[in-house]
Amino acid sequence: MKHAPPGYECPFCGIAATLPASYSRSAIVFADANVFAVLPLHYYGGIKGNCLIVPRSHYENLLEVPDSLGNDFFAATRRLAQAMLSAFGCQGISTRQHNAPAGDQDVWHYHQHVFPRYSGDGLHAGHKGVYTAEERVALAARLRAELR
């Protein structure tokens, strides 16, 4: 079942179509042939450095993602988690993913959230903040530096 409204312009498809050759001044952390990682517009619970892993091809939700992308997502998640542990000194990593309106999905392109975690960090407290463009670029640069 599709949930995107008629005429929906997918923001992740827009990013995928315009991925720069160099990410040095962007919120893109890494990209390969099938997926990319990006700092989103929002952070939660005061935890900064969270990222999204997104397929380059459009799939509305988990039910549409082909099995063949499973290894790409797992490898990207592990790679990003290792970079977060090094870059931010976090104590753990959480992932989450939402499907359909009842599952709190609000962008109609599959994506997985990856969060650096700290004891008592308040991730689930409901606070949602907005990054500045400069914060996104700086945090992405810190993660990219750990991927080298």
Rank of each mutant, 00 (worst) to 15 (best):
P20Y: 01
P20E: 01
A21L: 12
A21S: 13
S22A: 11
S22V: 14
Y23V: 02
Y23G: 00
Y23H: 10
Y23M: 07
S24T: 13
S24H: 07
S24D: 13
R25I: 00
R25C: 01
A27R: 15
A27M: 08
A31H: 07
D32R: 11
A33Q: 13
A33R: 14
V35A: 05
A37D: 03
A37F: 02
A37L: 05
V38H: 00
V38S: 01
V38N: 02
V38D: 00
V38M: 01
L39D: 03
P40Y: 08
L41C: 07
L41H: 13
H42T: 14
H42E: 09
H42W: 06
Y43V: 11
Y43M: 07
Y44L: 10
Y44T: 09
Y44S: 10
G45P: 11
G46H: 02
G46P: 07
K48G: 05
K48P: 02
K48A: 04
G49S: 11
C51H: 00
I53S: 07
I53N: 03
I53P: 09
I53F: 07
V54F: 11
V54E: 04
V54M: 06
P55F: 03
P55H: 01
R56S: 04
R56V: 07
S57D: 09
S57M: 04
H58W: 00
H58G: 00
E60C: 08
L62W: 06
L62G: 03
L62D: 00
L62E: 03
L62T: 09
L62F: 12
E64A: 15
E64C: 10
E64Y: 15
E64H: 15
E64I: 08
E64F: 15
V65Y: 12
V65P: 14
P66Q: 02
P66K: 01
P66S: 02
D67R: 14
D67H: 14
D67I: 09
D67Q: 14
L69S: 02
G70H: 07
G70Q: 08
G70W: 05
G70I: 05
D72R: 11
F73E: 06
F73N: 07
F74S: 08
F74P: 01
A75P: 00
A75V: 14
A75Y: 13
A75L: 14
A76L: 10
A76W: 13
A76K: 13
A76I: 09
R79H: 08
R79M: 09
R79N: 09
R79V: 04
L80A: 05
L80Q: 04
L80M: 14
L80V: 12
A81K: 06
A81H: 07
A81C: 06
A81Q: 03
A81R: 06
Q82R: 14
A83Y: 06
A83E: 05
M84R: 08
S86D: 01
A87V: 08
G89C: 04
G89I: 12
C90S: 12
C90R: 09
C90G: 09
Q91P: 01
Q91F: 02
